[in-house]
């Protein structure tokens, strides 16, 4: 552990900001972190409040009267929520792996200055960034041509590549990989595929971690694909489930007039605000655990090692 810390900190150990600046920076970050955490605390607090206590005393940072009401709902809907959690996890992992491969390979190809089709492929990546065929025709292609309707692939494939990520990746490769490294490998007779898989990828862990993190978050946060392509609610992801719970209440309220008397009955069956917030907590929690996993790959110094070695 001690050696690793020394390695990680690298230069800082003999080249640091002074103590006062360090304390100041820490203070700033503590404030920032609090600003980011407090709303989550409020979500947690609502999830533990009883409906009556919110009605009578309003919202609080910490619940006034503790109530497990919301979590009984979660437990009661356990099967549904576990399944949604499973879908989210599967989609996130599979999508991230696939997406990282598709993104980094394209990013690398675009970063090679001498590649003949570079200009052409740049347009292939650029055009979709500004133009798209719209929801209706994408839906048609994905369901009719590709048969993705009601399949887990409809949650994975359409989000695997984003031009934004490809361009970030290309920029990363361009600015962090020394040309000499690839040239020397080419002179050694290594094929481009070999160079990419056994030289570039291993030294690009920070890039992979970044793209992986972006993809992972995008998949975890996505609800729109579920809403559009999944008819069988058993295949809903957690975020989609929450979105559906939240939007149902809203939709009922907005269409009260057209439902006539059924409205009151229907509203009564909707999960309470605390239950909805409990689901929101379920979404945030896994992420708090996932981030450190990616974080450990943001380590400096790997590039030098490879060049020197």
């Amino acid at each position: 552990m001690a050696t690793r810390t020394a390695y990680e900190t690298g230069l800082e150990k003999f080249n640091r900001t002074n103590k006062f600046v360090n304390i100041l920076f820490n203070l700033i970050f503590i404030i920032l972190a609090l600003i980011c955490v407090i709303p989550v605390v409020v979500v947690l607090s609502i999830s533990f409040s009883s409906e009556a206590s919110i009605r009578e005393t309003g919202y609080h940072l910490l619940p006034v009267a503790l109530s497990g009401e919301a979590y009984t709902y979660i437990v009661k809907q356990g099967a549904m929520i576990l399944r949604a959690l499973g879908v989210s996890a599967l989609v996130t992992v599979a999508g991230t792996v696939l997406g990282v491969f598709l993104t980094t390979s394209m990013g690398y190809v675009l970063s090679r200055p001498a590649y003949k089709l570079k200009g052409f492929l740049t347009w292939v990546v650029f055009i979709p960034m500004v133009f798209n065929g719209g929801l209706v025709s994408s839906y048609f292609i994905n369901t009719n041509l590709l048969g993705l309707k009601d399949s887990i692939w409809s949650l994975i494939l359409p989000l695997a590549v984003s031009s934004f990520n490809v361009i970030i990746c290309k920029t990363f490769f361009k600015s962090t990989i020394p040309d000499g490294l690839i040239e020397s490998a080419e002179i050694d007779g290594a094929s481009q595929l070999r160079i990419f898989f056994s030289i570039i990828l291993p030294i690009s862990l920070p890039v992979i971690a970044t793209i992986g993190l972006f993809l992972c978050f995008a998949y975890w946060n996505d609800w729109f694909q579920s809403m559009l392509y999944i008819d069988n609610q058993n295949l809903y992801s957690l975020q989609a489930l929450l979105n559906s719970l939240m939007s149902n209440v809203d939709a009922l309220a907005k269409n009260a007039a057209s439902m006539g008397v059924s409205y009151a009955v229907l509203v009564a069956t909707m999960p309470k605000e605390s239950a909805r917030m409990a689901v929101a907590i379920l979404i945030v929690l896994p992420v708090a655990f996932a981030y450190p996993f990616f974080q450990k790959y943001f380590i400096s110094g790997l590039t030098i090692g490879a060049v020197k070695g």
Partner: peptide, 27 residues
């Protein structure tokens, strides 16, 4: 190298064609 790089870019290019360029007739 160009052939090899094209090969490397192929999966992503196919993805772009399927998910981005085919639906564009919708415009």
């Amino acid at each position: 190298q160009d052939t090899e790089l094209t090969l490397l870019a192929l999966p992503t290019t196919i993805w772009y064609i399927l998910f981005c360029f085919l639906p564009m007739f919708g415009i």
